[in-house]
């Protein structure tokens, strides 16, 4: 007897055609192997669905009305490199200050992102996007 394999997962998800659905319901009536596999697949799916939905870290999207994203700065090498480069070319003194936690603006994040892109050879060289201009959304 040919077993159903991946059709069983699709059946669980309702991602089958009407003909496929009929095939599965008919087949599993007589096939202990596919019944057992369907139960295993159901268990795995239920396990994943039981994972708690995590809240966004505090502050990640706070203050979106003014488009300010509080960012917890961590002592990472790329941040230091980006901060140094930004300080040289733009003269933004706030990037140099080693504050452990400082709210920074969306523009600053964008600037830092662009700087990372310039430093990273994996990203397209010479294609840095200018910093995003504020205001955003309802501020116009």
């Amino acid at each position: 007897m040919t077993h159903l394999g991946e059709l069983l997962s699709a059946y669980l998800d309702g991602e089958v055609t009407e003909d496929e659905r009929k095939l599965v319901t008919s087949h599993i009536t007589d096939c202990g192997t596919c019944q057992a596999e369907l139960a295993d697949l159901h268990l795995a799916r239920s396990a994943l669905r039981s994972l708690p939905v995590l809240d966004l870290p505090a502050g990640l999207l706070d203050g979106e009305a003014s488009v300010v994203i509080p960012l917890v700065r961590r002592p990472r090498v790329w941040i230091a490199a980006a901060a140094a480069t930004v300080a040289v070319f733009v003269g933004v003194a706030t990037f140099v200050a080693p504050e452990p936690t400082v709210p920074i603006t969306f523009n600053e994040i964008s600037l830092e992102h662009n700087n990372r892109s310039q430093l990273d050879p994996l990203l397209t060289p010479g294609k840095a996007v200018p910093p995003v201009s504020l205001p955003i959304g309802g501020a116009e």
Partner: peptide
């Protein structure tokens, strides 16, 4: 996608 989901669930079941 269908194949990956199926095999992923089977691997997860084995691991659990």
């Amino acid at each position: 996608v269908r194949s990956r989901i199926h095999r992923g669930r089977k691997m997860l079941r084995e691991a659990l």
